[in-house]
Design a protein around this nucleic acid. Sequence first.
RNA 1: GGCAGGAUGGCGGAGCGGACAAACGCACCAGGCUGUAAACUUGGCGCCCUAAGGGCUACGGGGGUUCGAAUCCCUCUCCUGCCA
Length: 411
Amino acid sequence: MTTSTPYFRVTSPGESLVPGPRTGVLITPHGEIQTPAFLPVATQGSVKALSPSDVVSLGGQVVICNAYHLALRPGVDLIEQAGGLHGFMGWDRPIATDSGGFQMTSLAHRLRISDEAVTFLSHIDGTQFHLSPESAVALQERLGADMIMCLDQPLNYGVDRDGVERALVRTHLWAERSARAHRPEMGLLYGIAQGGTEADLRVESSRFVAALDGTQGIAIGGLSLGEPKDVMWEMVDVSMPLLPVHKPRHLLGVGSPEDIVEGVARGIDTFDCALPTRVARNGALYTPQGRVDILNARYTQDLGPVMEACDCETCGTHSAAYLQHLFKAKELLAYRLASIHNLRFIHRLFDDARSAITAGTYEQFRRDFHAAYTPSDAAAREEQRGLWLRSQQAREQANLPDEWESDPGLD
RNA sequence: GGCAGGAUGGCGGAGCGGACAAACGCACCAGGCUGUAAACUUGGCGCCCUAAGGGCUACGGGGGUUCGAAUCCCUCUCCUGCCA
């Protein structure tokens, strides 16, 4: 069984088919990535509130941008003229891109889907934007992406089995077309497994993606979209044994610190997630004990750092009280300092995870982490999620032309 | 001294006889955020009881009218504008 290819090499001992934590090296056109690794989200060509040199100094090896957003603004022509995304952003390390597939859930009321393509109604100016599997690959290649995602169709939690099945069939069809459209000398193409929260459909999709020629990596998609955590991990668990060991595995849209620890334990190589940077901008800072809401009254007079024993610039220089003051005053520095802390926390978590895997002590690392860390409240999360989706829909409906109203955009 | 207007919850500010413990904003308190239309958003915010719900005290002070008053009348105190 080979565990080495021109683009990925498993480096931890005990190469086997049994899913478990592993280290590796992902080899891309713009350099190597030590895995497991975290991809900070830079949707519009920027990790919000941070400069590329910040991201590097925090331990960032690779970022993930969004082809849909960048195609709408500023447009791929300009980015190409600038030397691709790398030149445009001033970032010389690897870049992953998402196709725009995720926008089928986040912008679900602004699109129409057919087997041929998805048509978005631009959230910026209302013009129509067509994205087919072929054009999504071409777009990402023109951007100069090192990791390219096939166009897929994820669904929010709660869609019935029939809908999940149709999205699955379409995602597979699109993956085949993506693989044919992909030029191998460009970035690594990732096929994406779907299947919602139906275990048998997850199995079917994982098998399909595993067997698909012309892709270099495999991503698990369509999770962390509202389903309970145990369901999410059940879906990952049924998928992992079916994936070839020699291909890198990416878990799309995950996660929180506790999810990352769990994902690594299952043999996921790379993760991307908006959460660490987004919650930072909203005043939530990670510590080994859990998330701290810096706006809470108990930090008003706390002149110590947010987290003892943190090696980030924020904790080394500033107090919790100062951070709270910056947030209350809406000073721009607040967003930068908080993002620095959270990204450093996440990257350090990966550093520690890789060390533990190498030392053969990952199980202990995992237990210690969970023993100390209190995640956000699951019941509150579920309750708030519906409210958030509803407020988003209200915002969408307000700007939509009549003929686009009240269509769930599933297909 | 005269005339006019006004005093509402921590602040600003609606309300002008019953649906008012009182819109809305700010401040404050707590929660949420997972391939980012998120520097966003949800809830709470007189006091008491565990929630549903109920009780109590409240719209400058005092006194009236009324089944019922933040809302109408009288009076006192204080503020603001204009005229002397």
